[in-house]
């Protein structure tokens, strides 16, 4: 697909030339500390931890989209959701984390797809708590869902994102499901009184 290879080229070029890099282990450890602290603060209420991670991600996404647009030199909106998916995976994840999750499992109406994370820098060296519940309740990388929701909302797309499997839980792959709910309309100026 033309747009996919173009996205891959942009992502590669931006990653090489325009991005300040930090040590990957620093990211892994910092994120791990945040999750561990949340688990402590919410007394291992993992549902609440997922929610807080999503919220943090959302607030990151609201700003990150501007940096994404600036770095990738994007001047225009994607023409369809498929192109959006390509840009998320091959440009977004590429320039910020140097990974390109695989896009797959499109629904026939092209409104829902999966991202499969073959590698996930957040989850290196991680073992979920061994309390019998974390394996079933905690979505360790849930911050990604929030980032995508926040970023796409600013680009006038309302989406819903959640993980459906995680290698950390013993699944075969780490898979996130993203659903386009609607395109958000422009806000109208207020009537003058």
């Amino acid at each position: 697909m033309a747009s996919a290879s173009k996205a891959a080229r942009i992502g590669e070029e931006v990653w090489k030339s325009r991005v300040d890099k930090v040590n990957a282990e620093l990211v892994t450890l910092t994120y791990g500390t945040i999750v561990a602290q949340l688990c402590k603060d919410y007394e291992s209420d993992y549902v609440e931890v997922n929610k807080q991670l999503e919220k943090m991600g959302y607030n990151i996404g609201l700003r990150l989209i501007e940096d994404y647009l600036a770095k990738s030199n994007t001047m225009r909106r994607c023409t369809n959701f498929k192109e959006t998916a390509d840009m998320i995976s091959k440009v977004g994840f590429k320039i910020f984390l140097n990974i390109t999750p695989t896009i797959t499992n499109w629904t026939s109406d092209s409104k829902q797809f999966s991202l499969i994370f073959d590698e996930n820098p957040l989850a290196d060296f991680v073992e979920l708590p061994d309390d019998g519940r974390a394996q079933d309740e905690l979505w360790y990388s849930n911050i990604f869902c929030g980032v995508l929701r926040g970023a796409l909302e600013m680009a006038q797309m309302q989406v819903e994102a959640h993980f459906i499997s995680d290698i950390l839980r013993g699944n075969d792959s780490t898979e996130m499901r993203i659903t386009l709910i609607r395109y958000i309309d422009d806000e109208m100026p207020m009537e003058d009184d």
């Binding site: 501007e66 647009l69 994007t74 225009r76 909106r77 006038q156």
Partner: peptide, 8 residues
Amino acid sequence: HYYETPTS
């Protein structure tokens, strides 16, 4: 002159 970002 006008320019609008994808984030409106």
